[in-house]
Design a protein around this nucleic acid. Structure first.
Length: 154
DNA sequence: GCCAACGTTGGC
DNA sequence: GCCAACGTTGGC
């Protein structure tokens, strides 16, 4: 069982969208490291902090769960999609994703500022300077601490 | 294989 | 809107 943090711009896809959809393919990731986490390291049942980025204030809005095994991101084959990748083929797909299930929406956003000010979260990847990665691993103790801040029990 | 140019992310 | 950080691209 591993823990993760997944970023999304709430204008594009928020925790509320996930709650309504119940399940969502994490499509559009076009970064190799983030892809590798989904393809190689995520297992069904893993939990992820759902982080709202590029919004005011940024922060963790809830929790999602890896719903299944990785498979090719269909948007890479779609010429009309903004995520279309002409260099990718069905025989040799470049981009893999997993589905996420809605788990919970926190009653209150745990803001980035709260995370930064909390000594217990020191070393969390998402807090490191210059981290733009949209998917990062989270240590168990950090995951549990963020849930505690949110008043939610996994 | 180097590296400058360019594009994107994301907090502020 | 600014800009630091950093990944990707492409010429050589």
């Amino acid at each position: 069982m591993r823990y993760w943090l997944i970023k999304s711009e709430p204008d594009v896809f928020s925790i509320d969208h996930l709650q309504k959809a119940k399940r969502e393919p994490w499509s559009g990731v076009r970064n190799y490291q983030a892809r590798n986490y989904m393809r190689d390291d995520m297992k069904p049942g893993d939990l992820a902090l759902f982080y709202h980025s590029s919004t005011v204030p940024p922060g963790v809005a809830g929790v999602a769960k890896v719903a299944g095994e990785p498979y090719p991101d269909p948007t890479q084959f779609d010429a009309k999609s903004e995520y279309h990748d002409p260099k990718s083929t069905k025989e040799n797909p470049r981009w893999m994703l997993v589905d996420f299930d809605f788990v919970t929406k926190f009653p209150e956003l745990v803001t980035l500022q709260q995370l930064k000010e909390d000594a217990a979260l020191e070393g969390m990847v998402v807090l490191q300077k210059g981290t733009r990665l949209s998917i990062t691993p989270v240590e168990t103790k950090h995951f549990k601490h963020v849930c505690k801040l949110a008043g939610w029990k996994p």
